[in-house]
Design a binder for these strands. Structure first.
Lengths: 207, 207
DNA sequence: ACGGGCCTCCACCGAACGGTGGAGGCCCGA
DNA sequence: TCGGGCCTCCACCGTTCGGTGGAGGCCCGT
C-alpha cells in the first residue's frame, strides 16, 4: 500500500486528488495539508511514501517545503503537481530534490502511475517539463548572481540607477556595473529588454 | 434543483468540484467540459442554471467562453472560478458578463452559496476580487490609445526609441510623444516602469 | 462648420543611461 | 596560498532618454 500525503492550498484540488486516488486499490491518502508548514509537520509525523504537493502555497513555498521534507522525512518522495511550468520553478524544484514534476492537466491514469513510480524512487517528468529542462540545458545562458537578480528586481519596478542604488544601499556605479553584466549575460541591450527577457526566463516573476 | 456545468481543463479540479457539489441536495452537476469550445457546446445543449468555469483554457479562453455562452444560452449564469486574480482578467470577465468571480482557494461552503446566489441572478465576488475592482474604479488611470499600446508593445521588447520608430514606420519624435503620454497616463517615470505597470494592468501581456 | 481627440512631427535641453577600463576587498575551493 | 569569482566603487565619454512647447492634418460627432 502506497501512503500518500496531499499538499495544496485549494480545497477543490485536495478534494479532487483524494477522489481520484481513492479508487486505486494500492494507494491510500493518509493526510492533507493546506500549506507548506503543515505539510512538513504531517510528513514528519506520517512518513508517507509519496508527497503530492503544489508549489505556490502560503507560509512556506514549494521549494522550501521540498527541502524541509527531505530533511525530516528522507524516505518520502515529493512529487510536484502544479499549474505553473516556468523555467525557474521547475529548475528550483528539481534542484531541491523533487522526485517529479507534473502539471495539473495530467490525466488521471498518468498521475496514479507517476505516484507509483515515485514511490519506487523513480523520477517522473511531464513531457512539457522535460522539454523545458532539455532546452534549458541546451542554450545555457549564464546564470545571474544573487546580487544581479536583486538589481534586476528593483530596476524592473521602474527605478532609475540612482534609486536602485539607494534601495540596495550601494553606489550608483555598482548598479551600473551589475546592469552591464546582466545585459551581456542575457544577451540584450537596455534595461527594459533585460527585464522582459528575465521574465521570460523566470528569473524574476512576471507581474 | 440547480443544474451546474463544470468547465476546467484540469481533471483534478473537475473531480474536486463535482465531489464537493455532489453532497448538496439542491445542486446537480449535469456536465463537465475541458475547454472553452466544449463548454459552449454543452451549455447550448444542457441549458444549465450555472456554469462554473475556469479562465485559462485551451481552444477558447474564459472571456470568449463567457461571451459565447451569453449568446447561445442567455439563461445560464457563468461563475468564474480561477487561480488568477489579475486586474485585467477580472475586469474582462466581468465585462463579458460573468455572474461572479471566485478564487480557487474559496472554502466549500462559500462556493456552494455562491452557486445558489448566481442561479438567482445575483453577482458574487470574492473579497480580494471586490477589493481590486474598487481600487480599479478609484485610481481610474486614463485608457491608452491603440497607437500608444502599439508603441508600448515594441518598447516592451526592448527597442530603443529609434528602433521602435523604424518598426512602426513613424518618426522617432512621434515615439517619444507617445511614450510621454503613456508615462502620464500610467503615472510612472521611465519606459521600464511603464512596461511593468502595463503588464500589471493587463494592457500588454506578461511574457 | 466647428471643436476635440488622435496621430504625426520639429527643435532644443538637461539628465539619465550605456559602455570602457580600470581597482580593491572578500571568501571559497583547488 | 593562491587563483578566481563576486561585490563594490571610480572617472570619463558619447548616446539615448525624458521633458517642454509647440504645430499641422485627420476624422468623428455635435
Amino acid at each position: 500500500m502506497i501512503r500518500v500525503l496531499i499538499v495544496d492550498d485549494h480545497p477543490v484540488v485536495r478534494e479532487g486528488l483524494a477522489g481520484m486516488l481513492a479508487t486505486e486499490d494500492d494507494l491510500e491518502v493518509v493526510g492533507q495539508a493546506a500549506d507548506g508548514l503543515e505539510a512538513v509537520r504531517l510528513a514528519a509525523d506520517l512518513r508517507p511514501d509519496v508527497v503530492l504537493s503544489d508549489l505556490r502555497m502560503p507560509n512556506l513555498d514549494g521549494v522550501g517545503t521540498i527541502t524541509e521534507i527531505a530533511r525530516v522525512a528522507p524516505a518520502s518522495h515529493v512529487l510536484v503537481l502544479t499549474t505553473y511550468d516556468t523555467d525557474a520553478d521547475i529548475l528550483r524544484a528539481v534542484e531541491a530534490g523533487a522526485a517529479g514534476y507534473l502539471l495539473k492537466d495530467t490525466p488521471r491514469a498518468v498521475l496514479v502511475d507517476a505516484i507509483r513510480a515515485a514511490s519506487r524512487g523513480e523520477t517522473v517528468l511531464a513531457p512539457a517539463v522535460a522539454a523545458r529542462l532539455v532546452r534549458r540545458l541546451r542554450d545555457t545562458h549564464e546564470a545571474l548572481t544573487a546580487r544581479e537578480i536583486d538589481v534586476l528586481h528593483v530596476v524592473a519596478s521602474g527605478a532609475s540607477n540612482a534609486q536602485a542604488a539607494a534601495k540596495l544601499h550601494i553606489g550608483e556605479a555598482t548598479v551600473k556595473t551589475h546592469l552591464l553584466h546582466i545585459f551581456t549575460k542575457l544577451g540584450v541591450e537596455g534595461r527594459t529588454a533585460a527585464v522582459t527577457r528575465a521574465m521570460e526566463l523566470g528569473i524574476i516573476p512576471a507581474p
